[in-house]
Computed example of a mutant assay.
Amino acid sequence: MLQKLPIENILFLDIETVPLKEDFGLLTEEQQELWAQKTAYQRKDEFSPEEFYDRAGIWAEFGKIICISVGYFTNRGNEQQFRTTSFYGEEKKLLTEFKNLLEGHFSQPHHLLCAHNGKEFDFPYIARRMVIHGIQIPYKLNLFGKKPWEVPHLDTMELWKFGDYKHYTSLKLLTNILGVPSPKDDIDGSQVRDVFYENKDIDKIVTYCEKDVVATAQVFLRFRGEDILPEDAVLHV
Rank of each mutant, 00 (worst) to 15 (best):
Q3T: 14
N9W: 02
N9M: 06
N9F: 05
L11H: 01
L11I: 11
I15G: 10
E16C: 04
V18M: 03
V18C: 05
P19D: 04
P19N: 08
D23T: 14
F24H: 06
G25W: 06
T28N: 06
E29T: 13
E30C: 03
L34E: 14
W35F: 15
K38N: 09
Q42W: 15
R43F: 01
R55N: 15
E61G: 14
F62T: 10
F62C: 10
F62Q: 13
G63A: 13
K64Y: 04
I65N: 04
C67A: 10
V70A: 00
V70N: 00
R76E: 15
E79K: 14
T84Y: 02
T85S: 05
S86W: 05
F87M: 01
K92Q: 14
L95K: 07
L95M: 12
F98A: 00
N100R: 10
L101T: 00
S107I: 06
P109R: 04
H110Q: 15
L112R: 10
L113F: 09
A115G: 08
H116R: 09
K119W: 09
D122G: 04
F123H: 02
P124D: 12
I126W: 04
R129G: 01
I132P: 00
Q136E: 14
N142D: 15
N142T: 07
L143K: 13
G145A: 09
K146N: 06
K146E: 01
K147C: 02
K147H: 10
P148N: 13
P148F: 13
W149T: 07
W149Y: 15
P152Q: 07
H153D: 12
H153L: 11
E158N: 08
F162W: 14
Y165H: 12
Y168Q: 13
T169W: 07
L173S: 13
L174E: 03
L174S: 12
T175Y: 00
G179R: 15
P181K: 04
D185R: 04
S190Q: 09
Q191C: 00
Q191A: 07
D194N: 14
E198I: 05
E198N: 12
T207M: 09
C209P: 04
K211E: 07
K211W: 03
D212L: 07
D212M: 05
V214P: 00
V214E: 00
A215L: 09
T216V: 06
T216C: 13
A217I: 08
F223W: 08
F223G: 09
D227G: 07
P230G: 07
D232R: 13
A233S: 14
